[in-house]
Design a protein around this nucleic acid. Structure first.
Lengths: 283, 283
DNA sequence: CGACGGTTTATGTACATACATTATCGTCCA
DNA sequence: TGGACGATAATGTATGTACATAAACCGTCG
């Protein structure tokens, strides 16, 4: 085809309106009209592969292809849009990687089915949450011990005898206690922690900065506050609290095991959580 | 270079051990030794771009490059590994898309900083959870009304007068009530719901199958059970319960607003949640 | 009719090339 | 000194080409 002069499309120098898809394409007429009718028209905003992602994802959202149905193959899409197969491939492969599509060699590309509730709830650092709400965040270390695993406390996923640091910490929002934290740190992985006083940076933040790139498993439950916890958090015994347990791993080694206990009516987990990356597409 | 005959690497017909990276590469010697020393050697498993992703991500995890530091540019990596720039580009661009790296034109590629706790907790359908635990799942519709928004109940994000369906539902695990559900459904979006009896498929599942591709926002709190709820769930009043609120959207229109109330010691949210896609890399 | 095996088709990967885009870095000049 | 400005170095996008891979398809043969 007319090889070049298409890169210019990526910039701001767009001319045609949203419906006119491409500008100087040679064969106007039937093909583009079909596209417009099908609602498949490109919008001219951003790179071509992004436009194609949006066009295809938009059609799926609008029910043009139902779950499980087959999409046109790369060659067909490529000639429909008048772009190379690689460009279509990039767009479709990305949608597949994001979970919208399933691709099988020889069989074709299908709208993903059984997209179950893949909703995910972001779990943020409490300091960030408090700060974002415009409140004053403070914390206080209540207790700190060095010991070995199995001596009084047992960290299941860690061999007995491993040196660990235990921390107890209270978190405040505008002076009100909102969360109690009890943490174990693996000293084999982070020996430097013994020299850290935690008078400025909170343990969670310190660990994230020090040992990034980790994975974790969580569990979130509701529990009634014990008398001791209730006293610490300044609520009456039995108040509903959110209990979050998190174990963090780095290269398959446990780094830290932490229990958060938050007062129910002073703290909530929340977030606009998306079935993966639907927002990226601006639909 | 020696253009072809490299595709064979993607298959199973690998020959060299994990340390020998490529096979018939022309210039053996210093380059590959450097790679091995640097721990950057490819492992020969899977496509080249995946191997490069693993090699680079692995080095970051091992602290070879710290947060904020700059990586070699595409040309350097390309000659290091003896692959084309496109292949390196694909690997690095994917790592950037997954949040591990930040790229700036002319400036270079950097290890992402401030990777905050982007942990995400998957929120599953309760039927799936119960079934996976090997228990018997049942549900019972307790109440069902058709009305208009504002008549007794108000759904904030929906205009007054919009027809809605309200549902109340109890979920059981092995006969024990574990969750109460109160749901509003936007009849403008899903009018078919009035013809659905929900005698086989639970409302959440029905809606997911019917209106996929949605986004949602959640909030999770801990509350003490009211007397009424306690009676329904078979616990004493005041028992700690997990309260999950979810509003689901489709093409910017609210579809359903649902409140789940789960008994604290019979239900927990949990999941191995990963800072994005670290698991994909098998590190 | 069913097992087997070759053909075909659609996706997957890799490389080469070309050009666009965007900061950064120097340099020159006021 | 400092600001404009152009060279430059990095990533970003698009196309063409070639081959690999997997699985569906189909025809043949037992």
């Amino acid at each position: 085809m007319q090889g070049l002069a298409r890169q210019g499309l990526t910039g701001q120098d767009r001319d045609g309106g949203p419906a006119s898809t491409q500008d100087g394409r040679a064969s106007v007429g039937p093909v583009q009209d079909d596209l417009v009718l099908a609602g498949l028209a490109l919008d001219g905003r951003g790179p071509l592969f992004d436009q194609i992602k949006r066009a295809v994802a938009g059609q799926i959202l609008r029910g043009r292809w139902l779950a499980g149905e087959r999409l046109p193959n790369e060659a067909e899409l490529s000639s429909l849009y008048g772009v190379s197969r690689q460009t279509v491939h990039k767009a479709i492969a990305l949608l597949a990687r994001e979970g919208f599509l399933v691709r099988r060699r020889r069989a074709g590309t299908f709208v993903a089915t059984g997209r179950r509730d893949r909703f995910a709830l972001p779990i943020e650092d409490i300091g960030d949450v408090v700060a974002r709400e415009g409140r004053v965040y403070e914390f206080r270390i209540r207790d700190r011990k060095s010991l070995r695993n199995g001596e009084g406390i047992r960290w299941p996923d860690l061999p007995d005898g491993t040196p660990i640091l235990t921390l107890e910490c209270l978190h405040f929002s505008d002076g009100t206690p909102i969360q109690f934290e009890r943490r174990l740190v693996n000293l084999d992985v982070v020996p430097e922690v013994v020299d850290e006083a935690f008078d400025v940076v909170a343990p969670s933040r310190w660990l994230v900065d020090r040992v990034p790139w980790s994975s974790a498993d969580h569990s979130v439950r509701a529990v009634n506050a014990t008398a001791e916890m209730a006293a610490l958090l300044g609520v009456e015994a039995g108040a509903a609290c959110l209990s979050i347990r998190r174990q963090t791993m780095h290269l398959s080694r446990p780094v830290t095991l932490v229990h958060f206990l938050s007062v129910g009516d002073r703290f909530s987990l929340s977030g606009s959580s998306i079935t993966d990356s639907a927002t990226e597409l601006n639909l």
